Simulated assay, not measured.
Amino acid sequence: MSADFNPSDPFALFRQFWQQAAPPGAQPFLPPMSEEEIERKIAELRVVEGWLAMNMGMLTMQIKTLEVQKAALAAMKPKEN
């Protein structure tokens, strides 16, 4: 273990890792981007968002279809006395 280990600081290990991994002055999470790059990234993410929304719609429809089939099978099942 490191001599700087402090059990009351659970993020010390991550902080130490990021300080060693990134060169001084670098932003490890968000690299600097131009306005055009940001707009392009937003457009790409909107396409992914639309694709995911379409898949969620299809998944929801399939779940509802299976629920209807289950209810139909339950309705046709003979009653036990």
Rank of each mutant, 00 (worst) to 15 (best):
79 K>W: 12
66 L>D: 07
2 S>L: 02
39 E>N: 04
42 I>E: 15
1 M>S: 05
8 S>P: 02
24 P>D: 08
21 A>M: 13
21 A>N: 01
69 Q>I: 07
67 E>F: 01
55 N>P: 02
44 E>H: 04
46 R>L: 11
36 E>D: 15
58 M>I: 02
58 M>E: 11
42 I>S: 05
51 W>F: 12
62 Q>G: 03
10 P>K: 07
53 A>G: 02
30 L>F: 12
51 W>G: 03
25 G>L: 09
9 D>V: 08
1 M>R: 00
63 I>N: 00
67 E>M: 07
69 Q>C: 04
1 M>K: 01
59 L>T: 07
54 M>N: 14
3 A>M: 12
80 E>K: 05
8 S>G: 05
25 G>H: 00
19 Q>I: 08
1 M>I: 01
16 Q>Y: 13
54 M>P: 07
45 L>N: 15
67 E>D: 01
10 P>I: 08
63 I>Q: 02
6 N>S: 14
31 P>N: 01
38 I>N: 02
2 S>V: 00
40 R>G: 03
40 R>L: 09
50 G>K: 04
57 G>C: 04
61 M>D: 15
23 P>L: 11
64 K>Y: 14
81 N>Y: 12
53 A>W: 04
81 N>C: 06
70 K>S: 06
60 T>R: 13
71 A>P: 05
77 K>M: 11
46 R>C: 01
70 K>W: 05
69 Q>D: 11
8 S>I: 06
57 G>E: 05
77 K>L: 09
12 A>N: 03
68 V>Y: 07
5 F>A: 10
17 F>Y: 07
4 D>E: 07
71 A>N: 06
